[in-house]
Every structure is written in C-alpha cells, then in structure tokens.
Design a protein around this nucleic acid. Structure first.
Length: 284
DNA sequence: ACCCAGGGTGACG
DNA sequence: CGTCACCATGGG
C-alpha cells in the first residue's frame, strides 16, 4: 500500500476503506462524523482526524514513522480484504453479503478501552453504549488541551470510581463489572500478552473477568487483540446465521461451532460482512 | 404498558 | 452440561 507523510498528514493511496461503515458498525463507539467523509476521535492522548477524498485516506496528525506504523495497524491497512471477499464469493450464501459491507475494516483498537466498551455493550444498544462511554470519558478521562475532547479513562481512574458514580454515568447494573475489571487490570492482568496467545486460551482468560462472557470476549479478541478468527455471536448474528445456513431453524451450539470452524482464520472478518448484511436487511 | 438492545451471572436441575 | 429469571436504562 503506497503512502506518504505530507505536512504532518499521513496519506494512504488506493485505499477503498468506507469510513462511515467502519465507524458505525458497532466495533468502535467514539468516532464522530464531521461530514460524510471526515471523522474525528481521540486515540491515546491525541485528537485524530481522518478523511477520504476519492481513493486517498488522510490521517492527521502524523509526525513520524512511529505514528505511521500505529495508523497502518489501527486501520488494518495491510490486511487483504479483497482476498477475503473473493473467498466469500465462492460460497453462494456468503457472496450475497459482500456488497453490503464493501470497504469495512476491522480496527485494531486499544485493548482496555475495547474491553470496558463491550462490557457496557451487554444487553444494550449502540446509541446508548456510545453515550455511556462518552459520559465515562468526560467524568474520568483527561481533557485534551482546551478542547471538548477527552481521553478514555485509565484502569486506575475507573478502579477509583465508586459504584454509584459509575451507575450515574449510565452503566447500570454493569457498574460493578467495570470497577472489578479495571481493578484486575490495574493489579496486573495483562491484555497485551493475549495478542500472542492461542485464541482459545486468550478467550478463557478474558472470560475470567466479571461481565465478560463468550460474546464480549470475542469482540475484544477481534477488535483489539488481532484474533481474526474470533466470531462474536450476538442477537443479530444468531438470526442471520439461522436464516442463511440453517433454513430458519435454530442451530445447536455444535452446529454453530462447526460453521465457524469452517470459515477458517478470517472468520471474524467474514462475521463483520454478515453483521452489516443483517443490519441493513433488517433481519428479524 | 410492553419489548428490545452487539449478554452475563447465578441458581437450579 | 442446558435453561432461565434477573439485571439498569432509554427508545420504539
């Protein structure tokens, strides 16, 4: 992928990423749209702005090779989505999903932020998840300069909040899960090492945390820890998979496991295509 | 008033 | 192992 840094902006050429789809599919909750093609978000301690002009993706600010490497990884630029799409086209059912999700990317996000975000996502909807996370950042994060933007809270700042404060932000009954998980991370539970661990082992580890079941663990593994075979099974996916692969009948756990195994190393990416298809079709 | 939302937990068989 | 009520909260 060709790219260059010009005046503090990273430009990536011949890039077919669809920013709207990528930011609004429920994998990330903090990107705000300025226009249809310009979005902004706090990553780490910096306010990042990205825009799309034709086939050129621009990311600002980007000051050095280290920044560049971070963005290439964050936006998953080096993964060959065309290859995944070609694989999907060989399957009659999967091929119908491809047009509904062209240009999506699976972001490689900050693990702690992703973990807390998906604990909040349990039995919740995307709009309210975003609102709650924003409240959490304003309450416990750091203001960036004199802007209206805030960083995502550190494990310590969340662990230091009491349950009532966490509830007041809108986390509801998940408040103790958040406090407990933040405390575990603060005390040394290492998320980074899960990246290099076997998928099943990493999943078991995550599920030891309160508020983290199979689905939340898979989201964290897929959206922040590089496990592209993780296949989050939410209510949308269950409906879609049952209709697409099991003739409308409810599949058993074994049948689902076999299906996901059959999708291989990129099952998680394929999952995102199915998710987009299901939501745009309004599968019920 | 009722149901749903990118579910998880704990209790009970 | 599987099932199930319950868990806050806001929008349809």
């Amino acid at each position: 992928m060709k790219s260059e840094i010009v005046n503090g902006t990273l430009q990536i050429f011949d890039c077919d990423i669809d920013l709207y789809r990528t930011f609004n599919c429920g994998q990330a909750f903090r990107w705000k749209s300025i226009t249809d093609f310009i979005f902004t978000c706090v990553l780490g301690e910096k306010i990042i702005t990205v825009s799309k002009d034709g086939d050129t993706l621009s990311i600002f600010p980007c000051n050095d090779e280290e920044d560049k490497a971070f963005f290439i990884n964050y936006f998953d630029i080096n993964t060959d989505y065309k290859a995944v799409e070609n694989l999907m086209r060989k399957n009659e059912v999967l091929s119908t999903c491809v047009p509904y999700a062209k240009g999506i990317r699976i972001l490689n996000q900050a693990p702690f932020e992703t973990l807390i975000s998906f604990i909040i996502s349990a039995n919740n909807n995307i709009k309210r998840i975003s609102k709650t996370i924003n409240n959490l950042c304003v309450t416990a994060g750091e203001r960036i300069g004199d802007s209206e933007h805030f960083s995502f809270p550190t494990p310590k700042s969340l662990a230091d909040m009491n349950i009532d404060e966490l509830k007041q932000v809108g986390t509801g009954y998940r408040a103790p899960y958040i406090k407990d998980t933040a405390t575990k991370i603060l005390e040394g539970f290492c998320l980074e090492e899960l990246k290099h661990m076997d998928y099943c082992e990493a999943r078991k580890r995550l599920m030891q945390l309160k508020g983290v079941g199979a689905k939340v663990a898979d989201c964290v593994l897929l959206f922040s820890l590089g496990h592209t075979n993780a296949f989050p099974m939410d209510v949308w996916m269950k409906r879609a998979v049952n209709i697409m692969f099991f003739n409308g009948k409810q599949a058993s756990c074994d049948e689902l496991c076999n299906l996901i195994d059959g999708l291989g190393e990129n099952a998680g990416i394929i999952q995102q295509y199915i998710f987009h298809y299901a939501r745009q079709k309004g599968v019920k």
